[in-house]
Nucleic acid binder design. Sequence first.
DNA 1: CCTCCACAGGAAGCGCAGGAGT
DNA 2: ACTCCTGCGCTTCCTGTGGAGG
Length: 394
Amino acid sequence: MPESFSDILSRGSVFIDRNVMSPHYIPENLPHREKEINKIMRAVLPALKNQRPQNLFIYGKTGTGKTSSVKYVMAKFAEMKSNSAISHVNCRIYNSRYRILNKMVAEHAPKFAKPGFGISFLYEKILDWVEGDGKNFIVILDEIDMVRDLDDLVYTLTRANDDLTKGGISIIGISNRLSFKDRLDPRSRSSLLETEIVFPPYNSKQLQSILEGRVKVGFADGVVRESAINLAAAIASQETGDARYALQLLLKAGEIVDEAGGNGVEDKDVELARKSVDEDVAYDAISTLPEHQRVVLYAVASMTISGSRYQKLSDNGEGYLLSGEVYEGYLSYSRKLGKKPRSARWFRQYLSDLEMLGLITMVESGKGQRGHTRLIRIAYSPEKVKDIIEKSIA
DNA sequence: CCTCCACAGGAAGCGCAGGAGT
DNA sequence: ACTCCTGCGCTTCCTGTGGAGG
């Protein structure tokens, strides 16, 4: 006999408001980002005085509060009366100059946002609209490194300021990769990077106080042990200082406690949450894998179970696989599946992709192994990975 | 010491699908 | 709707590296 909704409802929950633990939630104040917020405010301040703000570039790893800080400042900014407009564009979705301009028009002059208009038409519509009352238009480009033709976009937007007689357009770019700067044309680089702010990762203490702040609002009084908060902070800071991950740990821990009908979040719940969150990440990564990478991973998993022909022992006694023998395995598995195997060169590329995703780890062969090869080990339990792949094929 | 083996990873080139511009 | 262009996935070819074996 399954439980009814009201059964579950009446059982109560450790949460008051789960949304508070979501990464999209913007709290009343963002601890440990005062300096950065201040810089952003100073950067956009000219718009309140009817001057064009400088372009701004914000860089920091995931979960360092870049987007939250910008959203926070922009919310405050919108409260002030000013002759300005803001567009917040997620470049992961709007990833070309055309799409971004289209989105800008759609947000502020929807009647012109029909498909089929060329770039130049959209450009002129934006100019007209900005010039109409000489406003300052701030375009926030979140995950700006995803834009394919970024040079063209930056050129178009900065060029607009020359074509405008009144008002101006400025860019706030947000990225978690610094390397994309190298791909930029020097001219667009210098105009995009007029002002630069770097968001450092949070340390354990800072994560702790962030979590405490959220727990106070999101969870019922006193249900989360302080040591559990500290543990979540410690785990997250050990990884990358990612606040998103830390919040996810506590959210999941709370869900685990709710499900078990408990009434307090303890260290062990955070430990369980960590396993589950990591597994979710692995599951997502595996199930969205291109098929040949999946076959490679499958070969690694099953060969780990059956054992390597070479079975060299590492320091903690676990076996490594050699890339050569994994290629053999990959060949036979792809043929078994009726797929034409890719070349050895591309196979190596697959391996390093899988390593990037954290699904396998590789080390250069040291002494004892013949020549120059890589020793491969799977990052998660091979049985589980095999299981996930078998299910995702069916 | 030299050569060979087994592999790493860069460079160039090719066909294809999908997007931009007309 | 139609062509042109570009990025992408992939192959082929190539050079580099370090231990094993003659």
